[in-house]
């Protein structure tokens, strides 16, 4: 945990020397891949999202574009924008790409069938061909209660139906959907091993610490160069590194469920700029009263948000633990 040295402000997370931050990350990435891991290049799964775009840009800067490849891994539920933006990014940085549609792999695992079966257990009227589905947290983060997911289906006429998910169906939907991240991880390691490269992971600090990743899925990588950066800092790096503006302006989505869904709806329950500041405040033991004053909120609300963070970190500890032996 960092030591608290300055008073809390909205600007406390602004990176003052972005060039230096990028240089340090790149130097460490070179050292990790070449010296520690003894690999000769980097494989990055690119989704057209901000995190993987910044990681690709950093890897290119660290290792040279000829030593980095971008893998695009769309599936049936992916937005077509994701593929288009990832290709645009790779073109911008001159990186070779490979497109691997993982839909047949997921069909083989029964990913869609198992997920849709659980959705239909909750909503018998669910038609997987015409309707779309997503899971989301409907509680506000300031409520002092653990998060529980609801299932929403969007009918072909745009009508939404939502209900709290029973545990059996919730677990089945999550377990089935996690085939997506785990299949992607397998494909990334195929390319990494066939080229003697490393897999460079793309989670940011929130994803790592709040457990917004799949164990042995997107959490499976050799090195995670932005795992210590807050989301707003990732955006600062994106601007500096020249990530295409369309990617910077895109709302972060999960791109996992058939119905459209932002990361805020799915997991974080608040905008990134606020979450960054609050997480930093919590992690560095700032008093709720001081934070409330700066963010123009009630102290009680801040206290509840801090409790929610603590719960999220504890609940997801299992995801970050290596195998126990």
């Amino acid at each position: 945990m960092e030591l608290k040295t300055k008073s809390f402000s909205k600007e406390i997370l602004n990176l003052e020397n972005i060039e230096l931050v990028c240089d340090e990350i790149c130097q460490k990435l070179r050292l990790d891949i070449k010296t520690k891991l003894k690999r000769r290049g980097a494989v990055v799964g690119i989704s057209g999202g901000i995190d993987s775009s910044v990681v690709l840009a950093l890897a290119t800067r660290a290792l040279g574009k000829e030593n980095v490849i971008g893998i695009l891994l769309p599936e049936r539920d992916s937005s077509p924008d994701s593929l288009m933006l990832a290709q645009k990014l790779a073109h911008k940085f001159g990186v070779r790409t490979f497109v691997e549609d993982i839909t047949p792999v997921l069909e083989g695992f029964g990913c869609y069938k198992r997920r849709d079966e659980a959705v239909a257990n909750v909503f018998s009227e669910f038609n997987p061909i015409e309707d779309k589905a997503k899971i989301e947290i409907k509680q506000t983060i300031a409520q002092n209660i653990p998060n529980v997911f609801s299932l929403t289906i969007v009918k072909s006429n745009g009508f939404h139906i939502s209900t709290l998910l029973p545990s059996k169906e919730y677990l089945q939907i999550v377990a089935a959907t996690n085939f997506k991240q785990r299949s992607r991880m397998s494909m990334l390691y195929y390319y990494a091993e066939s080229l003697h490269y490393s897999v460079v992971g793309t989670p940011n600090k929130h994803e790592v610490e709040q457990g917004f990743f799949v164990k042995y899925g997107d959490g499976g990588a050799d090195v995670m160069p932005i795992g210590h950066l807050y989301k707003t800092q990732v955006y600062q790096l994106a601007e500096y590194l020249g990530v295409p503006q369309q990617i910077i302006e895109r709302t972060p989505t999960t791109d996992t469920y058939s119905a459209e869904q932002t990361q805020e709806e799915f997991f974080y329950q608040m905008p990134f700029h606020e979450m960054d500041l609050l997480w930093y405040a919590w992690e560095n033991d700032y008093k709720a009263e001081e934070v409330a004053l700066v963010l123009n909120k009630e102290s009680k609300e801040i206290q509840n948000i801090f409790k929610n963070f603590e719960r999220k970190q504890k609940t997801t500890e299992y995801l970050r633990l290596p195998p126990i032996f």
Binding site: P146, P166, S167, R311, T315
Partner: peptide, 17 residues
């Protein structure tokens, strides 16, 4: 129950069941 850490998200979900 939540303050004492007796239930997390899954614990609450199983309680609802």
């Amino acid at each position: 129950l939540f303050e004492e850490g007796l239930f997390d998200s899954m614990g609450l979900l199983f309680l609802i069941d």
